[in-house]
Structure formats: C-alpha cells, structure tokens
Design a protein around this nucleic acid. Structure first.
Ligand SMILES: [Mn+2]
Ligand SMILES: [Mn+2]
Ligand SMILES: [Mn+2]
Ligand SMILES: [Mn+2]
Lengths: 222, 222
DNA sequence: TTGTTTTTTTAGATGCGTCTAAATTAATGC
DNA sequence: GCATTAATTTAGACGCATCTAAAAAAACAA
C-alpha cells in the first residue's frame, strides 16, 4: 500500500487509467494535460512525483504506464466513485445526471472499511447508475459484453445497459425519451442519409434517434 | 455565502467555534494553536486569511471572534460532521468510537443538497451518536438541558444523554459497562474519599464509577 | 516597577500544485 | 532532408499551508 496520496495525485492516476483503458498504448504527457485541463508543465511535474512513488513507469518522452500499484490504486478510486454514485442514486434519490461531481469529491475519502461497508449496505451492486461495472474489493472488474447501439443490424433486439457519454445533456435527453438502462428495443430502420436509426421501443412505440445518440449508448443483444 | 473554503480554513473555523463555545470570550491565538496542534506562526497566518474573507473579526493581540458569516459556516460544518457520524452508525453499523475521524473527512464534502438529503434519509435526527445536537439547515441548535452526572445529588434518577469526552477509550469503557445513551440510573451513594459514585442501573445492578467518569457523562434528570 | 514568562508577530524557509514563457526535442509534411 | 508544427521540458514564478528561530509585545509576579 502506498502512503496517503493527495487528491491531485489521485486525480492524475485516474486520468492516466482512463486514457490507457481507451488506447492501450503508453499515455502521452499531452493527453493527460487535455484530460485534466492543466498545463503540460504541470503534468511533467506530477509525472515525476508519481514515478518517484512507483505509481507509474515513465521514460522521458516515451509516455506513461501505470505500475501494478498505480493500476490497483486507480481501480480502487473507480470503485469508490461508482459506489458513491450508486449510493447517491439508490439511497438519496439523486438522478443519474447529478451524481458525478459529488462522487468526484467522495471518491477521495480515505477508508477501506467505509467503502466496503457502503458496498454491503448497497447489497454489492455490480453496476453503477450509468451502467459502468463496479470493481470488487480486490480490484476485479467483470466487463459486460456490450456493443454500441449504432453497430446493431436492422431487426436486432437489444436492451440498453450503459452510456458512453456521461454528460448531463445526454443523460437528460435519455430521461426525456425513456431510453433508460433496461429499456428494450428493436432496430427498425437505418437511414443512410444521416445514419439516424428508427427504433421500436415499448408498446410498439417508434423512436427516431440520431447517429450521435446511437454511438453513445451501450446495448446487449437479446 | 462565502466562496469555497479550503479544508484548512474550515478546520480553523471549527476550532475557533469550539473554543468560543466553551469560553465565551474572544479566542486567543494561542488556544487555537493548542487546539489545532500547529505553530503559533501558522495561526497568525491563517487568522489573516480568515479576516480577509470576513469570517472572523481580529484585532491584533486582542483575540478572534467569529463574524456572523464565520459562525454560520462553522455551525454548518458541525451539522455535516454530526449527520455523517449518524449515518455511519445508523446505516453502516460503525460503532460510536469509530466514526469521528471519518466524519472529519466527510464534513468537508461541499454540497448543501447532499447534506439535506442525508438529513432526510436519516429521518431528521436531532442528536448524533454521542448525544450532541445536530444543527438544522438554518443553523439552529436546540440545546438540551442537561447536567454532568457528577453534579447530581444522591437519590436522583436520571438518564444518560451524552458524553463530554469523545475519546475512544472512554467510549469503549461505556460500551463495556453498559452506560450508553438512554441508560437509566439512580445515584446510590457518593464516596467522599475519592468522589466516586455508586449507581443503581437496570435490574437493581450496582455500578461504581470514578469521579472522572461522572464528570464526562451528560444526563437528564427524571 | 521591573524582571520574567507567555503570547504574538516577523522573517525566512519548504513542499505541493499550479501557472506562463521560453527552450528543446520529436514528429509530420512536402 | 528540411522546414514547420506539435509535444515536452526547463526556468521562474505564485499562492497555500505549514514549519523553526528570533524579535517584539503583553501579561504576570515579586
Ligand atoms: Mn461519474
Ligand atoms: Mn458512473
Ligand atoms: Mn466527532
Ligand atoms: Mn459526535
């Protein structure tokens, strides 16, 4: 276990973890500065601190990779973030578009015991309010096999299981149209003109969604 | 509303509030440094920052008093601290001697909405696990009329409602002897030799407590 | 009242986390 | 291959929150 990390250090670790999840390759200094909204100079500084603490491997100008310690630490932060989000929605009746910023604060609370008790209190949820998997106490994540809605062929039945875009406007759009987690649908038609999709949802209702929406919804085939 | 305060600023405000609750008089620089376990020089620095932000009145070498803004801010922190402690005990099954340090972290989470929803979730508790009153959303505190157990005359019936000493050893002592919040008792005898007290507790059981214990338990006469 | 002790302030330093501006190095395009 | 562009590092700065050591002021005591 590392000694206590500062919130800044934790946020950098999370950013590096997030970027490397997407790319696989070593993470560039630049991509971190974009993700974190800080100057490249600040990133260089922090990179040195995190290397010092053996949380990342860094070869000058070659990019950053998390060490095992760094990765488990990052995963733990993700666990905390998603459990808190679940708590806020399930117990305090926040909506799924209100919880992210709060979880950004709560994820920095330091207590293994607290988070495990919270997990138990929530009855060991597997997914957070956005459909993202919640790592277990040992950092294990059970990825769901899922695809983007936009990748389904016409006629395919599917169920909504998650969102790629977590932004408030998108979540509120889904709220309005009823395309929430658990919603069942069939791909009715695909319009080549603008790649929009005609969906058949509950009660024979038809719903037209843009390409952008289809590219930000995760579904599971049925 | 002040703009966001740092955790350090919040902790100083709480300390000043706590000291002034006890003394009434302006708070000395020195008492703050003792309470916070920091150097007097650090206190001088912070005092200047807090004055700048109109959270305290400070006249050089005359001591510190909270402004209305400072006081309401401090009370709000106390509210958050006590609500979180209540949550940890009531919902996550922590014991009353385990929650203080966690609440020290949680009280700095910034969200009015969160704390009000937590309050509601807990069913608007009036007292925290240590018997301390929880200020309401507007900062109002309903003080209970209570006395120290040591001040009761022989023969007096009373019920335990709070602790003055919040230390783990004391709380664990109470746990062991069953002298918990809600416990009913009668003062049986007072020994002049060492000011210890013979109590009659549930089921005709007798319990001998030291002067120190009697001076750290709040009770309500019955 | 005058010396001693305590409190408070000042001076100067440090680490963290951030910035801008400039220099350096690497990558890209032609 | 060379020029331009992009990424990275260096240099120097700043605010916050802390410290120690020393000076100054106030309080206390004899
Ligand atoms: Mn989130
Ligand atoms: Mn989420
Ligand atoms: Mn407490
Ligand atoms: Mn308490």
């Amino acid at each position: 276990m590392p000694d206590q990390l500062s919130q800044a250090e934790e946020n950098y670790l999370k950013a590096i973890y997030k970027i490397s999840r997407q790319s696989g390759t070593p993470v560039s200094n630049n991509s971190i500065s974009v993700e974190m909204n800080t100057s490249a100079a600040s990133v260089t500084d922090m990179i040195n601190r995190l290397s010092q603490k053996d949380l990342i491997h860094y070869q000058k100008r070659k990019g950053v990779r998390l060490t095992d310690l760094g990765e488990i630490t990052a995963i733990h932060l993700v666990r905390k973030h998603r459990l808190w989000e679940t708590f806020l929605v399930e117990k305090l009746n926040f909506t799924w578009d209100e919880v992210h910023e709060l979880a950004e604060q709560l994820e920095h609370i330091q207590s293994r015991e607290l988070i495990n008790r919270l997990d138990e209190f929530l009855d060991f949820p597997k997914y957070d309010p956005h459909g993202d998997p919640i790592p277990d106490e040992n950092g294990r994540i059970t990825e769901r096999q899922q695809v983007l809605l936009s990748q389904l062929p016409v006629g395919q039945k599917a169920v909504v299981v998650g969102v790629k875009d977590h932004s408030t406007p998108f979540l509120q759009y889904l709220e309005r149209t009823g395309l929430l987690l658990g919603a069942e649908l069939v791909i009715g038609e695909r319009f080549a003109y603008d790649n929009s999709l005609q969906l058949e949802v509950a009660d024979e209702q038809k719903l037209l969604i843009s390409q952008k929406v289809g590219q930000n919804l995760y579904v599971q085939k049925k």
